[in-house]
Every structure is written in structure tokens, then in C-alpha cells.
Simulated assay, not measured.
Amino acid sequence: MKLFDVYPLMNVTPVKAKDCILWDENGTEYLDLYGGHAVISIGHTHPHYVNRMEEQLKKLAFYSNSVQNPIQERLAEKLGQLSGYPDFSLFLCNSGAEANENALKLASFHTGKNHIIAFKGAFHGRTSGAVALTDNPKIVAPFNAGHSVSFVDYDLNQISEIIKSKEVAAIIYEPIQGVGGIILPTDEFVQGLRKICTENGVVLIADEIQSGYGRTGKFFAHQHSGIQADLITMAKGMGNGFPIGGVLISPEFKASHGLLGTTFGGNHLGCAAALAVLEVIEKKNLIQNADEVGFYISRTLNRLPKVKEIRGRGLMIGIELDFPIAGIKNNLLQKHRIFVGNAKTNIIRLLPPLTLHKGFADKFINALEEEILNKQEN
């Protein structure tokens, strides 16, 4: 049997990792500034994380949600404390796509409506609608079973008109669009969005699957705008590589038995992973580190030629160049041994572990400058 070929693969086989460094089967060392789509939040194989996982494996890795699970309760308490949402409730699942599906269900159950507003360039999971490619905000496209969606610009007037004409359950937005190219709505727009939702009984869902968990210098990226969302979806950095996702749920939503369900969500091993991540983030002040090192990278990159714009917050950075980046991305990997991501054809994406320090940042900055200057000379 062969693997179903849906992923373009780099010619690198990592076999070992520590903090921000990977090694391949030949012992070649690489700097990881991508973390598997923002998954590695506290660095590869952090000793506290490994110990937590080993201890839990020796006890119980998994049982269903039909039994009491004290680790879930400890995770919820710590998450509420660090995130600034202590009065919210936590529903645990397996992935970002599942988190968004459950958030949409909750919004529909709560409002009795089933139309969704999302934004052009958005990505909310493979099963919840891919990147919006339409330029027509009036187009209604399939989004999820029982839901329809309008993809709109960051335009409050457009949104108000759709709310007047359709039975809108929720607006789902990414505080920073990752797949869309590290795009940020303004704080003023987000505050206006919150106001419209409150005035019209529409649920505001913040998709923090890529931008959450301290990556932007606050626990959640929407907190930069000074608002609270009604539902907050999480995954990626939550388990530092172990699959786990979740939804933070406002006290306005009432739970009932059977309302939501998941087989693997909230399993013992996943909760041990997520709890370890929070403990390391707190102990090592990684949110502050993400803010400081991210600011340093963005400020320094602004002096490089051919850099059109630096976007993002903290350690969620998009570097827009004024030419296609395929060659530079390949050289960063093959010549400088640095993993980066990309969006569109001309944006380098950085989503490194939150443990990244300025020495590693300088290595990338110097390599990128060298490649840009080489391209100019050629």
C-alpha cells in the first residue's frame, strides 16, 4: 500500500528534535521556525512535557468521556487562569476542524439560526470550509452540515446588511489569518464587529487555532483588540504536537447532556500534554518572550531591501517580499538549514516555538538578508 499523495514533501527526514532544532537521519542540524503549522509551542521534546507524557502513559492513556477525568478539570482550571477566561467553560475535542464544527453547532443551537458570516481568505478547517476564494460577498457556499456561509470583506456595513437579510447564527473570524497570508483586521474593526454581534444577538467566534496560546504576545490574539469573544476555538499549539483541540464557551451558553460529543476528545494523554504546555508557558514566561522576540524580528526585518511589509504579532509573522519566494525558501532550507513556511507566492511565514531566542532569530535574519542581496545581484 502507498500513501495517498496529497502533501508536497521536502527532501528532509527529521529523526530527532530539541527546542528549536531538528536533526535528520544524517545528523544534519536544522533551525525550525515553522513548528509544523504553529504546533510546537514550548519547543520540541521539552523535558517537563516528556515527563508528563511518560508518567501518564504508565497510568492510563485513554478512556472515554463516560467516566470522571480529574486531568480535564485541572486543565480547565489552569487554562481559565492563564487565558483570562476563568468564567468560561471548556469542551475538549481532537483538532481545530472539530473545534470549529462544535462552535458552529453551539451557535446554531443557541440562536436557532444557521447562517454563518466568514471572511475572504479565511481557513477554518478542511471540514468547515476551505479558504474563501470568492470576491462576491453575496455568494452563499456550503460550510458545514446545516450551515450556509457568506464570505465578506472587513466591512461592517456589508456585515450589517447580511444580518438584516439572513438568519445569522454566528460570525467566525481569525484575529490573524494564517493561511490567508498573516492578515490582521484592525482593532477598531474588531471592536465594531463585537458591537454588531451584541446588538443583533449574533454569536462571535474567534478562531484562535493558529494564533492562540501565547503566540502573539497575549494568550489569545483577539485580546489585543480589547474584546471578549463568545466562543473561542483552539488546537495546534495546545498539545505541542499531540492532537488536542477545544472550545472555550461563554456562560451565556447552557450545557445539557448529549448536546455535544467526541470519542477521543479530552483523553487522559491529551490532557496531560495540554497541561504540561500551560505549565511551561507560565513558568518560562513564554508569552512575554514571544512578544519581545517577535518585536525584535519584525523591527530588524524592516531594514532589509525588497521587504514590502512585515505583518503579524509576536511570533506569528508574515514577511511579504516584492517577488516570488520559492527560490529563497528552498535556499533557506537547503543552504542555511532553516525551516520556514509560506503563504501565497510571496510571503514567508514564521511560526516558531515560543522558546525562540534572539540568537536563533539573528541566524534567520542574516540568512534572509544574504538571499535577498544575492537575488538583487543576479
Rank of each mutant, 00 (worst) to 15 (best):
I328P: 01
L368S: 06
G27R: 10
G241A: 09
G80F: 10
V190L: 15
L106I: 07
L184R: 04
G217D: 05
I172E: 00
I310M: 08
S108D: 08
R313N: 09
T263F: 11
N100S: 05
S256N: 10
K375P: 00
L106W: 04
P175M: 02
F220H: 14
V340A: 04
T45R: 12
V152Q: 01
G217R: 03
H257Q: 14
N330W: 03
N136K: 08
G84P: 02
L315M: 10
T134C: 05
I249G: 00
E77F: 13
I162H: 14
H46D: 12
V247M: 07
A367Q: 04
Y49G: 08
V203N: 06
A367R: 03
K344F: 14
H257S: 15
F4D: 14
L259D: 10
L60M: 13
D153S: 13
Q56Y: 02
L22R: 01
P70V: 04
L354W: 01
K236V: 00
N100H: 02
S256D: 08
K329I: 09
K306I: 11
Q228C: 08
Y85T: 06
L350C: 10
K344S: 14
Q81P: 00
K120S: 05
L204D: 00
T134M: 02
M316R: 08
A103F: 06
D230T: 01
K218M: 12
E208G: 05
E25N: 13
Y296K: 04
H224S: 08
E101C: 06
N346P: 05
G318Q: 07
T13F: 11
D32K: 03
K335C: 00
P353E: 09
N136M: 07
I71E: 11
P142T: 09
H222E: 11
V277E: 01
Q177G: 09
L3D: 15
F253G: 02
A255N: 14
F143I: 08
A132S: 14
I317N: 05
K329M: 15
V67L: 14
T111P: 03
E101I: 07
E282I: 06
Y154T: 10
K59L: 13
A169K: 03
D135G: 15
G43W: 03
G294R: 00
K78N: 02
T345N: 15
P137V: 08
G36Y: 05
T300A: 11
F219K: 00
N302S: 13
A122L: 04
Q177T: 09
V50N: 08
P175G: 06
N157V: 11
K254L: 13
K254C: 12
L354H: 04
K344N: 15
V67A: 14
A290T: 07
I196V: 15
V293H: 07
R299L: 12
L231Y: 06
L31V: 07
I328E: 01
C93M: 12
